[in-house]
Amino acid sequence: MPLLEVTDLRTHYYTEAGPVKAADGVSFTLEKGESIGIAGESGCGKTTVAMSLMRLIKGGAVVGGKIMLGDLSLLDMEMDEFRKVRWERISLISQAAMGALNPVYTIGSQIVEAIRTHQQCSKKEAWDRARGLLSQVKVDPSRVKNFPHELSGGMRQRVMIAMALACDPDIVIADEPTTALDVVTQVQVLRLLIDLQKRLDLALIYISHELSVLGQACDKIIIMYAGKIVEMGPTAKIFSEPKHPYTQKLLGSLMDIHAAGAFPESIPGQPPDLIDPPKGCRFWPRCTTGEAICETEEPALVEIEPGRFVACRQLNKAINE
């Protein structure tokens, strides 16, 4: 049994213009100690998936699907019960390095809060553990009484990582943890995260719009487009033989930088409107190899080889023939 099994997750945001279908039938599994990356252009629903796992969707709701953590069905739990799952089982390092820590409390007290919410221990013990956690992420433990604004961006993100580890969770979700940092710090934080994941045998969901980062950090990669998974598979396979035209384009732009140092050529066109997405394949308007049928018929996510999934009608057709 996998550690985490997400089946057909559907999350909508409610707006005046209608529901935004930000996650539309997302399914994947995560094993213990496995790290999985979610990639895709900004706005494709990566954060939505992460927030759905934590049941933190604001201005919308998870309208369908199933999330199993072991034998716990997360979406069916009472909120009071589910709060115990948060951080204890799944913790979150969120996108905004700058704003993710509460400005009016010391970083120590914020870590202590996380510990003491879930575990019975004395204040002193909790503070000691907070110091330990800080040294684990290579922040000077004497800074535990500092306020967030007294730390640099990189340090704050390390503190976030320390906090995420506070309750020994099974799964850590890192939503673009390095985005707001400068390049050097980005590398350091990424290294730290990879290192900790290996050492603590964590299951990690790493979200990024940069495929190259995921290549270093993850065992498995999910490519999302417009609220759907278009391709999923082992990292090496995705990089060596991308199947979906969208993945190919993403990788193409990646290669460009490495090859010529040129700016990545962005994929022409715009991601579709998620309130009223295209009827058929969502990538069809931007696809260069698409056929007429792609416009009307939605492709299913098909396992083309063990552990390797693609949602593209042409590929499936090729396989079927």
């Binding site: 934590m54 933190l56 948060r86 969120s94 993710a100 919410t117």
Partner: peptide
Amino acid sequence: KEHYITTAEAKGVSERAVKYRHAARN
């Protein structure tokens, strides 16, 4: 709407604590 409120919620602290200790205090 601040991110630290999301963090606090994700930490699993009670709704009351998120509301008063984190949001209202700020």
